[in-house]
């Protein structure tokens, strides 16, 4: 069974360029603005959308994404509304893959079977659940794969060759390589080390390997995109939204426009990544 993710990755491979994968927090700063941001992403050159599910206690996230989640929750975002956001997006776009990313508890409380059925119906293609390592695959990964939803696993610098096969076993869609040990939004790791890590993972799998954590600029996207199958940008987008929200929630510019400007630049980065040696 192929998903939108598989089809999109195959298409980009044929075009000879890496994917630009963009993360934003569902419901940040509010539902309507957030839906506008989501709609702006593919137009600005995003190939795959990561739709953040807010959680009160995001243990692997830095201050920017923590704050984005709290803004969304404060304005009434729930998992049900995040699913609805995908559904609303699908009315106009049935091609761009959507990966939901977050933590397990809201899904567990929603009910795994009910969540998978609703996610499928809402046009969700993949899941990234930070606190479900392969040791906990029975919880959600195996049911998701059975439901036809990709379960995308994070591989990290601490995932050694001995452990990689276990991490890759039930992974599908793509592998998300976390470029460093740390929380989201930290500084980008040494790109030569990232290059070696991508090669190491590729020696274990035929799946596309995408790299994230720390990518903020078009230049970084270009240099990572020279050897990775995709580049994930999250905190920079979340910051672009935060920057135009005033202290009282009064916006100084349109957040969707701010995101579009940033993503247009990033997409130039991935589109030129393979044209010349990144330097």
């Amino acid at each position: 069974m192929t998903t939108r993710i598989d089809r999109r990755m195959a298409k980009l491979k044929a075009e000879g360029r890496p994917a630009l994968i963009t993360y934003f927090m569902g419901g940040d700063p509010d539902y309507d603005t957030s839906l506008d941001i989501m709609k702006a992403l593919p137009k600005a050159g995003s190939d795959i959308i990561e739709l953040g599910m807010p959680f009160s206690d995001p243990m692997a996230d830095g201050p920017a994404i923590q704050a984005a989640g709290l803004r969304a929750l404060k304005n009434g975002q729930t998992l049900a509304k995040t699913l609805k956001m995908a559904q609303d997006f699908r009315v106009h776009d049935d091609e761009t893959p959507i990966v939901m990313m977050g933590y397990y508890n809201p899904i567990y409380i929603y009910g795994v079977d009910r969540f998978l059925a609703d996610a499928k119906a809402s046009g969700i293609d993949g899941l990234i659940v930070v606190d479900l390592p392969p040791e906990m695959d029975e919880e959600l990964c195996i049911p998701a794969v059975k439901a036809g939803i990709n379960f995308i696993r994070l591989a990290t610098p601490t995932t050694d060759d001995q452990r990689l096969p276990k991490v890759l076993e039930n992974t599908s869609g793509f592998v998300y390589y976390v470029s460093m040990t740390g929380i989201t939004g930290s500084a980008l790791a040494d790109t030569t080390k990232v290059d070696a890590a991508v090669k190491r993972i590729k020696s274990h799998t035929d799946l596309p390997v995408c790299v994230g954590f720390g990518v903020k600029t078009a230049e970084q996207a270009r240099s990572i995109g020279a050897y990775a199958d995709g580049v994930v940008v999250g905190t920079a987008i979340v910051n672009a939204i935060a920057n135009v929200i005033g202290p009282q929630g009064r916006m100084t510019a349109n957040p969707a426009d701010a995101v579009a400007t940033l993503v247009t630049g990033l997409s130039q980065g991935v589109r030129t990544a393979r044209l010349a040696p990144a330097q």
Binding site: M59, V130, L132, M136, L154, P157, T159, R163, V167
Partner: peptide, 20 residues
């Protein structure tokens, strides 16, 4: 062996921490 007390317990951590 999985660290479970009935349905409770387990190892719900990010992959970075799992090897640790």
């Amino acid at each position: 062996e999985q660290g479970m007390f009935g349905i409770f317990g387990g190892r719900f951590v990010a992959e970075t921490l799992m090897p640790l």
